[in-house]
Write a protein that binds this DNA or RNA. Structure first.
Length: 680
DNA sequence: CGACGGGACGC
DNA sequence: CGACGGGACGC
């Protein structure tokens, strides 16, 4: 009879893993297979539209498909009921969801071009039941009704997923303040189908029995989070506000665990689920309590577990589109909890927005219908609608931004933890230098936060390794770092903010980019290391002066390096000793005594250039060589870097010795002098 | 665990 | 090609 188990198997997962696209019962009574992949073109890469086959008359299934169309895999978490039609050639452009009609159509898989759906009803498919009682019915229309997947809400997560009834009420309430009677709910074939079934009562949320007692809550009651409450309002003050929507089961102002301070928000549970929906509908963002400058928030608490996957990122907006414009575009697909166009400090649109629905299903519907559906005026390509970054992805994105600000190239290729630590190590080096020059400046809070975030994120990836660490000189420190004292001490962030240097101040011997605005010539910048020597006549300057001296040496020895001055960074600073024409010839130059360092525990995949990049921030790298086994061409995981001055070598050792990559720590020390430690 | 270079050619 | 943030989610 029912192949419920199998359906559940691939319908039940809410994770984003993909299973093979095959939707059928064991007896093949209902089949949505990858034969319908072609239809997916109609709705974009994030969805897979399965037209009903003859066996599954009258049903249309819209499946999320996060891998693109080349693979017939999908996340079959959603099922959409049938809707109106338009032709696929038109795409979904401008299609409106008509929730007022519940028209079922029988669609034939062999004629997909002529039929295409418009969604009128959305539901999460958590558990599907196929009723086959009337499969032999001769009336096609009738059969289609009988073959409907009956959908059941999954309680834990999708608690607020609206049933059809609730949704109707919801919508009506939005249009008319005074709710109409349930009798006015439009004829609903879905409900009609499900009512006479043998389904247990709890699968029919619309037909709940009355509460036994008023002091109990319904099993599917919703805990609401109430925000933007004035702190002088306590439970007793709030109660009247919310009581008008139904009997309150529990109302608790949220207070700080330790201080007992009113946090300006509360939890509210009504006895009846519907009361919660009503209250949310009537109040959320609709009213503002006295003394507040933002409207009250009434929405399911986080503990209701419907957290993610309902917020969309919308890209490729025109610059002139407002929150309202975007909202109008998206409200057809569900109840929007928030809708914000991102703007820069000057108020100009960034051309993108966030739209948060109340449910994942709504978000899915919006993606299906809108992604790529049109090109807005002023946008360079078609509309982008996708799920917003997760918290984790956001962190990565933030870090990448920090990285680009720091001038680090290809942070993508850097695994998080190592990159973070590396940035710290470099910053450490920089801050130490800068502290000599600018002791009284303060690190911007933004930079501090960014650094801390990176630190935290790094903690999530303890086993990460550097794949392609490429760093260019960094002109702005991200944080104050405690000097790694001694060996094998990993860099750590210190609480004390230090300096954010003025932009033109470059590090070590790297030419500042862009050129300083004060009229210095580029070569002068290089020569003075961005700092006029007479600016800071402190005895503490010795190391800097050493570096400076070293650089003089360098400039004297390799005058060709002047050619590097003023080059934009993407144009790799690279080997300073390198002659442009024949890079290969110059890789094996050893620096003076004390300028060569030995690095061990390099990641296997580290190449010369990567190691070079890694040590560039500490000075002029004359050569960087990872040793490879000649037979296997595999790295031997150690190498040498030569600087043109001892101070750079010391700085590199100081910063990078003990630097953790994966499970190992770099060993960075001075290269032993030739012939030293030879047993004979 | 320790490990410290510059490696080579056939025509 | 753009990725937020305002103010909170207890016991």
């Amino acid at each position: 009879m029912m192949k419920q188990r199998e359906l559940e198997r691939w319908c039940g997962g809410r994770e984003r893993r993909h299973g093979p696209l095959k939707i059928k019962t064991e007896d093949e009574s209902c089949v949505f297979a990858d034969t319908t992949v072609a239809q997916a073109l109609m709705v974009g890469v994030n969805t897979l539209l399965c037209l009903a086959t003859e066996q599954s008359q009258g049903l249309l299934v819209l499946l999320s498909h996060s891998q693109g169309l080349s693979q017939a895999t999908c996340r079959p978490s959603l099922v959409y009921d049938i809707t109106a039609c338009h032709t696929p050639r038109e795409g979904w452009n401008g299609t409106q969801i008509d929730r007022g009609r519940h028209r079922l159509r029988t669609l034939h898989s062999n004629a997909p071009e002529t039929l295409s759906p418009t969604i009128i009803q959305r539901r999460d498919l958590v558990c599907a039941t196929i009723t086959e009682t009337e499969r032999d019915n001769t009336s096609e229309k009738r059969a289609s009704k009988q073959n409907i997947l009956r959908l059941e809400r999954k309680r834990a997560r999708d608690n607020l997923q609206l049933t059809r009834d609730e949704e109707n009420i919801h919508l009506r309430a939005k249009r008319k303040p005074s709710p109409s009677s349930p009798a006015s709910v439009p004829h609903d074939p879905l409900r009609e189908t499900s009512t006479p079934s043998a389904a247990p009562p709890e699968q029919n949320p619309g037909l709940r029995a009355p509460l036994p007692t008023a002091s109990m809550k319904e099993p599917d009651a919703i805990k609401l989070f109430i925000g933007q409450i004035p702190r002088n309002l306590e439970e007793k003050d709030l109660k009247p506000i919310f009581e008008q929507f139904g009997k309150i089961y529990e109302l608790t102002v949220i207070k700080d665990k330790y201080t007992g301070m009113h946090k300006g928000c509360a939890f509210l549970t009504y006895c009846a689920r519907e009361s919660a929906l009503k209250a949310q509908n009537a109040l959320h963002e609709q009213k503002t309590l006295p003394g507040m400058n933002r409207p009250i928030q009434v929405k399911p608490a986080d503990s209701e577990g419907r957290g993610e996957d309902r917020k969309l990122f919308v890209g490729m907006l025109g610059k002139q589109q407002t929150d309202t414009d975007v909202r109008k575009m998206f409200e057809a697909f569900g109840s929007i909890e928030e809708c914000t166009v991102l703007r820069g400090p000057d108020g100009t649109s960034k051309g993108c927005a966030f739209v948060k629905y109340q449910s994942n299903a709504e978000a899915q519907a919006a993606i299906s219908a809108l992604h790529g559906s049109r090109t807005l005026p002023g946008a360079s390509s078609s509309l982008v609608v996708k799920f917003a970054d997760t918290e984790k992805e956001r962190g990565i994105r933030r870090m990448q931004q920090v990285a680009s600000q720091l001038g680090v190239i290809s942070p993508m290729s850097l695994h998080l933890g190592a990159y973070n630590a590396y940035t710290q190590a470099v910053s450490n080096h920089l801050v130490q230098q800068q502290a000599l020059v600018a002791q009284s400046a303060y690190l911007s809070p933004v930079a501090t936060v960014a650094a801390v975030q990176m630190q935290q994120l790094a903690a999530l990836n303890p086993s990460s390794i550097i794949a392609t660490p490429i760093a260019t000189p960094i002109a702005t420190p991200i944080a104050s770092i405690t000097p790694s004292s001694g060996t094998n001490t990993p860099p750590t962030i210190a609480a004390t903010p230090v300096s954010a240097l003025p932009p033109p101040l470059a590090v070590n011997s790297y030419p500042p980019v862009p050129a300083p605005p004060n009229g210095q010539s580029a070569s002068e910048s290089l020569y003075t290391n961005g700092v006029h020597p007479y600016q800071a006549p402190s005895p503490a300057l010795d190391p800097l002066q050493q570096a400076y001296t070293g650089m003089q040496h360098y400039t004297a020895t390799y005058p060709a390096a002047y050619g590097l001055v003023g080059q934009p960074f993407p144009h790799q600073p690279a080997l300073v000793a390198q002659q442009p024409q024949q890079p290969q010839q110059l890789q094996q130059r050893e620096g003076p005594e004390g300028c060569n360092i030995f690095i061990y525990h390099l990641p296997q995949e580290f190449t010369d250039s990567e190691m070079l990049q890694m040590f560039l921030p500490f000075g002029n790298v004359i050569s960087a060589k990872v040793f490879v086994d000649r037979a296997t061409n595999q790295s031997k995981c150690f190498g040498f870097v030569s600087f043109d001055n001892p101070a750079s070598a010391q700085a590199a050792i100081q910063a990078m010795n003990g630097f953790q990559i994966g499970m190992k720590r770099l060993k960075v020390q001075l290269k032993r002098p030739k012939d030293a430690n030879r047993p004979y």
